[in-house]
Design a protein around this nucleic acid. Structure first.
Lengths: 170, 170
DNA sequence: CAAAACCGATTGCATTTTGCAATCAGTTGC
DNA sequence: GCAACTGATTGCAAAATGCAATCGGTTTTG
């Protein structure tokens, strides 16, 4: 379950951490979707992860130091998963990954608007986003009002595209 | 063999292209190691890829438009694999991946010096490297002398570390 | 206060992918 | 002519994945 260490190459070691089809999807949903609970990740992801794979990856990501798990005080069974600093610093990689995919792959418009905004925001926006994630997951202080967060900005962009594409829904 | 399209999310689509343990290793060896032939990739990689996996991934990467294959005029059996623009634009992602791995994972000193130099060089160095790769793989013009290439710079850094660690070898 | 919905998983099982070693037919160099 | 090398392919065991059903417990609902 832990890391292979086929070689000490940084790219290889990074791939051994998240070089699979699901680990980064889970982290994406936590980072951009704000998901913190098992069921949110299970039912919320577009790619329909299976529950045993999700359980396995959450365990693995915890062992690797990317996530921590805590009991939810409001519900005796609920677990809250938090990103560690190690996972939060993946933001620039996810931004690049999204930008690359947007250029070369058949992305859908509504799902790529976030990547576009994040790319245009550049490193300053990524830094701000990482600070927000540190506040949210690690409890560090922050003075960003809840409606001016990067996540809210990305979400607003997404909703604007959806509204434009289906103007007379409802 | 081709892409799954579990969703149109750019991050997901990117993962479906190289979200496995070997695809990026192969591209890494072509980009940083200058490998162009099957046997070079087979015997050259530190991680000891199996020949069937290598054949499978080369085929897959060609189908996805990341590589092209041409006959080597000097040897009727030899194939030369070339990066496409799609693959060359992975350089910034590989640079970030290496930088992240260097911070968080137990990298070896001699194998991470390249990542360190590439990180310190920043986007200007990445652009220069991509131009060199375009020259090497796509035949576009370039006026960089062969000894001043980014790859040569990275290689020199690697050899300096190796020499320092074993000063009286040979 | 019982039924229903929800909680984070776990189990069983079929399918797919991986990893490894051996091998292939053709080409080249000596 | 023969050994070494070329890009692969084959057979097979082991591991990972995908899917559906289920678990024991908690909370909400009528």
């Amino acid at each position: 379950m832990s890391i292979d260490r086929r070689s000490g190459c940084p790219i290889n070691l990074s791939l051994e951490v998240f070089g699979d089809r699901w680990s980064l999807i889970i982290l994406r949903d936590m980072i951009f979707g704000g998901k913190r609970h098992f069921r949110e990740l299970l039912n919320g992801s577009l790619e329909r992860i299976a529950s045993n794979i999700l359980a396995d990856r959450l365990k693995r990501l915890m062992e690797l130091g990317m996530l921590t798990r805590a009991d939810d005080p409001t519900h005796k069974q609920k677990a809250i998963y938090s990103l560690t600093e190690m996972a939060i610093t993946l933001v620039p990689i996810l931004a690049h990954l999204g930008a690359w995919g947007r250029v070369w792959l058949p992305v859908s418009e509504e799902l790529s608007i976030r990547a576009e905004l994040l790319e245009k925001g550049g490193p300053p926006m990524w830094e701000k986003f990482m600070d927000e994630l540190r506040h949210e997951h690690l409890g560090t202080p922050s003075d960003t009002p809840p409606d001016a967060t990067v996540r809210a900005t990305l979400q607003a962009g997404y909703e604007a595209v959806v509204a434009r594409k289906a103007p007379d829904a409802g």
